[in-house]
Each structure stands twice: as structure tokens, then as C-alpha cells.
């Protein structure tokens, strides 16, 4: 145990101990569980709700939304194979393309057709 020379330190701890004696919660209170008793005042439900709300707002903001409604009507939509099918009916389709011939393509491209329509 402490030696005679340690009386000064013993006195310090004795004084702190006496002060603590007035502050200590009762055994019954600790056994009951302070946190359990006071749970109705807990911050957690409010905190959890806020987290869920913030997360939902962030998800809604991040999700991509179409700016213009997209509708497809019958006969308007063209696909790449339409060009090939139309090519068969053109007389010049059998010609071999020449280097530098800018007018060789017998049909308008599908994109230019769409712009004209």
C-alpha cells in the first residue's frame, strides 16, 4: 500500500473521493438503467427520421428525369435496316463505287430524311 512519503498524494485522492461521494448516483438508479428510463426523450427517432428524409431528397435529385415526353407513332420511326431495304429498289444499286465520287449514294441518309419530314 502507499508509503508514509505519499501522504500528500493520498490527501489529494481522499479529497476528490469525498467530493465524488456527494455526486455518485444511487445503486438503484444505475440498476434501473438511466438510458432505458429516459429513452422517451431520446434524440434517435428524430435523428433517424431526418436521415431518411435527407436520403430520400438526395435520391430524388440524383435520379435522371426525361425533360420531354417521348412518344412513338406508327410509321414515324425509322431503323437502319429501312435504308438497306430501300436500297434494293434503286437502279444504281449494282454499281461499284468510284473513288472520289461524291454523288454515288443513291438514297438520302436516314437522318436527312427525318429532318425533311
Amino acid at each position: 500500500m502507499s508509503e508514509e512519503a505519499d501522504r500528500d498524494i493520498e490527501r489529494v485522492f481522499h479529497d476528490v473521493r469525498e467530493a465524488d461521494r456527494r455526486r455518485a448516483p444511487s445503486f438503484t438508479r444505475v440498476m434501473a438503467g438511466r438510458s432505458m428510463v429516459r429513452r422517451p426523450h431520446s434524440l434517435w427517432p428524430a435523428l433517424a427520421t431526418s436521415v431518411v428524409v435527407v436520403a430520400a431528397v438526395m435520391v430524388l435529385r440524383v435520379m435522371p428525369r426525361p425533360s420531354v415526353p417521348f412518344e412513338i407513332r406508327a410509321g414515324e420511326m425509322r431503323v437502319p435496316t429501312d435504308y438497306l431495304l430501300e436500297l434494293v429498289t434503286v437502279p444504281r444499286a449494282g454499281e461499284i463505287p468510284r473513288v472520289g465520287a461524291v454523288d454515288w449514294f443513291p438514297l438520302e441518309s436516314s437522318t436527312s430524311n427525318r429532318r425533311e419530314q
Binding site: 465524488d20 455526486r23 455518485a24 448516483p25 445503486f27 438508479r29 444505475v30 440498476m31 438503467g33 438511466r34
Partner: peptide
């Protein structure tokens, strides 16, 4: 119950002086 005061003081020391955490820790230990 006999050692409660000493246990509480030790729990406060283990929780670095936080009395509320010490009370929760002591409850869990009991």
C-alpha cells in the same frame, strides 16, 4: 451494492470523466 460507489468512480475514470457514459457502462456491467 456494497462496492457501488467505488465501481461508479472507476467507471467514470474508464470513461475519461464522462459521468453519463459511466452510468450507462456501469449499468451494462451490472
Amino acid at each position: 451494492a456494497r462496492l457501488h460507489f467505488e465501481s461508479h468512480a472507476w467507471a467514470v475514470r474508464c470513461c475519461r470523466g464522462h459521468a453519463i457514459e459511466a452510468e450507462d457502462v456501469l449499468h451494462r456491467a451490472y
